[in-house]
Computed example of a mutant assay.
Amino acid sequence: MNVLQTRRLTKEHGAGASRVRAVDEVDLDVPEGQTLAVMGPSGCGKSTLLHLLGGLERPTAGEVWIGQRRTDSLSERALARLRRRSIGFVFQAFHLVDELSTAENVELPALLAGRSLREARRRADFLLDQVGLADRARHLPSELSGGQRQRAAIARALANEPQVVLADEPTGNLDTAATTDVLRIFAELRAAGQTLVIVTHDERVAATADRLISMRDGMFVDDTRLLDGTGRLAGLIGLEG
């Protein structure tokens, strides 16, 4: 079953002669449990694509589906509910709430989705243990290293057991050691069957995926299946240009 689908997905910026297509009639199918990496040069549209998939931006044209539900035509309220329940976001800049402890940041999505404080706290404790931050649960984000903050952000993204996790340059602000920690967590999520879509410039991140899509000028230029998350070519799905 496909967790994510798009049909002729298009996003334009500007008007008239200055109009630019950041995403240009993209068709995408992401099966349940797949880890997909999207790579391409800066400005190619990959982050815009991720924002469209997650409902953070509205498309100019085309369709977005999460599970069996079309999302591009939802009201803002319905879309917000869907994001809380079905999508986990991991951003390059972490976006943790500075005034909340690590545990409270991880609890927050569950509370917003209507879970009890006890349920949210139990889930946060479990996730922080999984990402190696149990001993940092009561620390503020300012007291964490960059790698620890990103691990906390990953735990937060998993708080509501989302259908899909969308990660935008998750290692972009991290050093080598912290990147290694994040790669380990993504590998564990992949092994557990979590659906992941990761936008990245980092070939080490892309090599852990089941599938790699390359973008240029808002379009997919190739779509490659990888073997065992090792970066070895398993078979070319499609190639344009």
Rank of each mutant, 00 (worst) to 15 (best):
R21V: 09
R21H: 12
R21S: 15
A22S: 15
A22E: 01
V23E: 02
D24W: 06
V26T: 10
V26M: 14
D29H: 13
P31T: 13
E32V: 10
G33C: 01
G33Y: 03
T35H: 14
T35K: 13
L36G: 02
M39G: 00
M39E: 02
M39F: 04
G40L: 02
S42G: 14
S42M: 13
G43E: 12
G43S: 06
G43D: 09
G43M: 13
C44T: 03
C44N: 05
G45D: 05
G45A: 01
G45M: 07
K46G: 04
K46R: 12
K46L: 04
K46S: 02
T48K: 02
T48S: 09
T48W: 04
T48C: 03
T48F: 03
L49D: 00
L49Q: 09
L49W: 08
L49T: 00
L50T: 11
L50D: 00
H51R: 09
L52C: 10
L53F: 11
G55D: 07
L56G: 00
E57S: 13
E57D: 14
E57R: 08
E57Q: 11
R58V: 10
P59V: 14
T60A: 01
T60S: 15
T60R: 00
A61R: 14
A61D: 09
G62C: 06
E63A: 15
E63K: 12
V64Y: 05
V64R: 10
W65T: 15
I66N: 12
